[in-house]
Design a protein around this nucleic acid. Structure first.
Lengths: 257, 257
DNA sequence: TTATGTATTTCCATATAATGGATTATCTAT
DNA sequence: ATAGATAATCCATTATATGGAAATACATAA
């Protein structure tokens, strides 16, 4: 994925970059705001945008003339969602795990150089549920992120480190690269990761890796809950269980230890 | 949307058509199966596919070398989903309606010349739930489809009729164009549509239209349940309630009767 | 192991089609 | 009515996408 080998069609590439502009805060963009974000002339952007528009990949607000991501992306997105083998295999295990500890369970997958949440099972007693599904996990301060990093090869890890900015979310967030390396080694040796209020104060999280038949860490599951419900002294016991479920899923993917 | 006005960038257009090839039964396609489905040379397709590949809009199975829709579509799809104003506005009303009659409630929106299910609230007692979300509704044999058709202008209706093939799903499916016209007039005058086992035997469904501030039928909601739970003699009463909720949503969109 | 067939990937010269700059049209607000 | 801002259109130029052919990779069978 990250390997930019082979033929790249410029206009298609640019059109895809334009879609990327809509991932930020701005839900709608005017036609002249897009060239500001990328080195392109307005008329070039216009052609690209207009092409996507006619196909429903972008929509235009008839009042404001501004553009936003279109329904076709939703259609294809749900297709991808429904066809995701990993998600389908993991579903029952995630539900069982969540029910056991009354925690939210996340399933995240590793694609190229990002980790994407692909499913979530809410805690039975959950009150407010805000879905991370479809979003990218930060690598350095989430359980699923760290545990996948911990099992990557040295090369892959370097590549990820080069792109990730180690933003500080809480006072527990590990922002020092050396310290993160040590943490990853620790995670690797014990087989699970703990996010101890590193992305949000008051939230703790235990994650274990999922491997495919080639022994690659293609995904991870995690249980997360307020610190009071995941007390430090219980972590090791729960982690073993998370690892157990992760192994079940791995085996469904053809993994044999 | 359907208006192919303005500049169209050929390669982008073709790249989007390629994505469309993956909407059918075939989840994965080989590079040489794609040119079969569209008038293009293999190397052209290769360039287009490869470009999408590097951006994560397509993925390649390393074993089989075959392609499938990529994670980026899922990411953007969920963005679209979360940002859909209509869905956010309608949510509470759909839930209330579903709870009241213990039925599944669907919300579908009208985009260009298709009607897409954008949300679903399961019946509280539902056992098997299979989500239509993200899929297109057939226009001639679903409640939401018919009720939106019924409020389109003559021109728009003609355009839709030209594209839709009136496939017969059950013995109740209306396949005759003239008969469908009569049905649509009936729906228009009484303000709601009934799908009486027209897409699936044993399933009945009542739908009402949602209008925007320009009085256009931009969406519809429907309640659906096994025929035994929506007996014919209760339909009119329930329909009035469905219309009521639809009106609430319409007003949220700025509609003023 | 070698041969054979199938599917993918790469190469390259050519002409087409995408591009950027300039112009015009369309709104919005004053 | 006017100004200002933004969107849409036009068009000549050349960079770029394209199709045909060739090469590679891979799987299956001899």
């Amino acid at each position: 994925m990250a390997s930019a080998s082979g033929v790249i069609v410029q206009s298609v590439n640019r059109a895809l970059d334009i879609l990327g502009c809509f991932k930020g805060q701005a839900i709608e963009l005017g036609i002249s705001e897009i060239p500001e974000k990328m080195e392109l002339s307005k008329s070039t952007v216009y052609g690209l945008v207009n092409t996507r528009l006619t196909k429903g990949y972008l929509e235009q607000n008839p009042q404001t003339k501004r553009y936003r991501l279109g329904i076709k992306l939703f259609e294809l997105g749900t297709l991808v969602y429904n066809r995701m083998d990993l998600r389908n295999e993991a579903k029952v295990f995630c539900e069982e795990l969540g029910g056991k500890y009354n925690t939210t369970v996340h399933l995240a997958a590793h694609y190229g150089d990002e980790i994407v949440y692909i499913d979530k099972v809410d805690a039975p007693e959950a009150v407010i549920v805000y879905s991370q599904t479809g979003k990218c996990a930060t690598m350095h301060c989430t359980g699923v992120g760290k545990v996948i990093l911990a099992f990557l090869s040295e090369d892959e890890l370097k590549q990820v480190f080069a792109k990730e900015d180690f933003k500080k979310y809480t006072e527990h967030t590990i922002t020092d690269q050396e310290e993160l390396y040590r943490e990853l080694r620790r995670i690797h040796s014990r087989g699970y990761a703990v996010d101890n209020e590193e992305i949000e104060t008051g939230l703790r999280c235990i994650a274990a890796p999922i491997f495919n038949y080639m022994n690659q860490p293609v995904a991870a599951i995690s249980v997360s809950a307020p610190t009071v419900r995941l007390p430090l002294e219980q972590i090791e016991a729960i982690a073993r269980d998370v690892q157990y479920y992760a192994l079940q899923i791995s085996q469904r993917l053809g993994y044999r230890s």
